[in-house]
Design a protein around this nucleic acid. Sequence first.
DNA 1: CCATATACCTGGCAGC
DNA 2: TGCTGCCAGGTATATG
Length: 271
Amino acid sequence: MPELPEVEVTRRSFADRIASAQILALRMGKPLRWPLGVLPQSLVGRYIFGVRRRGKYLLLDLDQGLLLLHLGMSGSLNFSPTQPDPGPHDHMDLVCDRGVLRLHDPRRFGAVVWAPSEDSPQAQKLLGRLGVEPLDGQFDVATFAQALKKRQSPIKQVLLAGDVVVGVGNIYASETLFLAGIRPTTRASRLTGPRVARLHAAIVQVLNRAVAQGGSSLKDFVNAEGRTGYFQLEAAVYGRAGEPCRVCASPIKSMVQGQRTTFYCTQCQKP
DNA sequence: CCATATACCTGGCAGC
DNA sequence: TGCTGCCAGGTATATG
């Protein structure tokens, strides 16, 4: 579910409300992708300074260390004043004096990990190989072009790998490549300067637009206030195989790359 | 170092 | 209705 826009929308929907809260209790449900890394009891009494995002991770800064949250494929967070009885897919309740942060994740690919600092081995194991943030001004065309020159894989798979630029998942990879007019199978190293520039701009534009639309709610994504997103309504290609291209009306195609489905337009996207 | 396949887990849906 | 197989927004890990 959650790519950069969904994670950022989630962050914005509760960051201000949880800031400066004190943790009163922590309930963990079924196991997630990794162990918490510390006894839940030891987090009681900690203060939450704020919530940052790195790639698709959320970082809750505490007065001692930080919590790294990942939503996996099916995760969502809810932050509310009440703590209803947990359902079978509610795997964490962070009970604070300002509300309860609940992680709901049916597939349990998500994670909640405590680390003593962002530079610690525990945190760096998860964050250490992440590429540049696309929306924070550090993402420049020249560096992007340089990184792509080294990669022989299809550009779609390079975007998904997240070690060049973070946050572009399966939906937005197809969407950005459509907007840039680039066929997803094109080898990253073969992209010319102008096409890299076009892709760079498309990534920034698509991700910003998706954040503004509250993310994509294909199935069940909701932010921490329970609200769905609307970007899926304006998706150009994702999930639209067989439907007419919104630009040229030729049928949208789909294919599989690296075990993931890619959507594209044969007319609008050139190899 | 790079590229690709695999595994993790559950629910929804199409097809029979 | 119920079964089976397939598909799904991610990514660490293993393997070549």
